[in-house]
Write a protein that binds this DNA or RNA. Structure first.
Length: 253
DNA sequence: AAAAAACCCAACCGCGTTCGG
DNA sequence: ACCGAACGCGGTTGGGTTTTT
């Protein structure tokens, strides 16, 4: 019983990748592109599971990833995003260019979470002085902020956010095409908006939540100008705290 | 100098979601 | 609408490295 394995494991290499395997995978992807991971190992001449190839490429071999120490700015942003999003590593990674979710997760688990816990204990006078891992006062401030109401992070469960509630006042306007509205304008809203039968107090609309999270290293987030121009106020820097404090599992999200 | 403990991170695993027939 | 395959995600593990005793 149980789930079917992703591939036949017999005769496959496991564990650390050799330089030769890295070369083979990199060269193959350079020529044929990434994707079709199940068939890729055979076509590339690798004795590896497709999943393993995908992970190796995404987390290590991709040319556009940055490796090495995290900067203070990056750490500050991770702490703030983690407070807001919980263990949504892929979403957090999406706001840190060139960093992988795995790397951020590891850095959080080995460094940042301890720093936040340590700071919380400090604030409660539970521990004595310790040499800090945090790089500057901004990181300390972010960590200190994260120690306040640490359980309010949104959805630590891995659930994708694909819906938003849009006030009724906006609905008719948005669903009625204006003659001068461009195709792009329509596409930026949704092609599958639904009005409920009670004449709709709110309605659900498909969206890409990442559109609302625009990085701004000074304040963490800023509103997406395109959505703002459509009258949909989803996020602003000043709303971050309110957003964090007020959303519950009962909210449509 | 050696052993033990702690740390770090690449890789693996299982499950949920999405896609395509 | 359904189902299987493929993909993507987050939690966990294993082993190499560094630090401490």
């Amino acid at each position: 019983m149980g789930r079917k394995p992703c591939c036949v494991k017999e005769g496959l290499n496991r564990g650390a990748w050799s330089a030769r395997e890295d070369d083979m995978l990199t060269n193959y992807i350079k020529i044929h592109g990434a994707g079709k991971w199940r068939d890729l190992p055979q076509r590339a001449g690798l004795k590896r599971c497709g999943k393993s190839c995908r992970l190796r490429w995404l987390n290590y071999l991709r040319p556009d990833i940055k490796r090495g120490n995290f900067s203070a700015d990056e750490e500050e942003l991770i702490i703030r995003l983690h407070k807001l999003l919980g263990n949504r590593w892929s979403l957090i990674a999406g706001r840190l260019p060139a960093r992988t979710d795995n790397e951020i997760k590891n850095h959080w688990n080995t460094n940042l979470s301890k720093s936040v816990l340590w700071l919380r204990d400090q604030l409660n006078n539970k521990t004595g002085p310790r040499e800090g891992r945090m790089k500057n006062s901004a990181v300390v401030a972010a960590a200190a902020e994260a120690t306040v109401e640490p359980t309010k992070a949104i959805r630590t469960k891995a659930v994708r956010c694909t819906k938003a509630v849009v006030p009724a006042a906006l609905q008719l306007e948005r669903l009625t095409p204006k003659s001068d509205m461009s195709t792009t304008d329509h596409q930026s809203i949704s092609s599958s908006a639904i009005i409920d039968q009670d004449n709709c107090i709110d309605f659900l609309m498909d969206l890409d939540i990442s559109e609302f999270l625009v990085p701004d290293l000074d304040m963490g987030f800023c509103p997406d100008q395109n959505l703002e121009s459509l009258g949909i106020k989803i996020f602003s820097s000043s709303m971050e705290e309110e957003f964090t404090n007020n959303w519950t599992d009962n909210d449509v999200f």
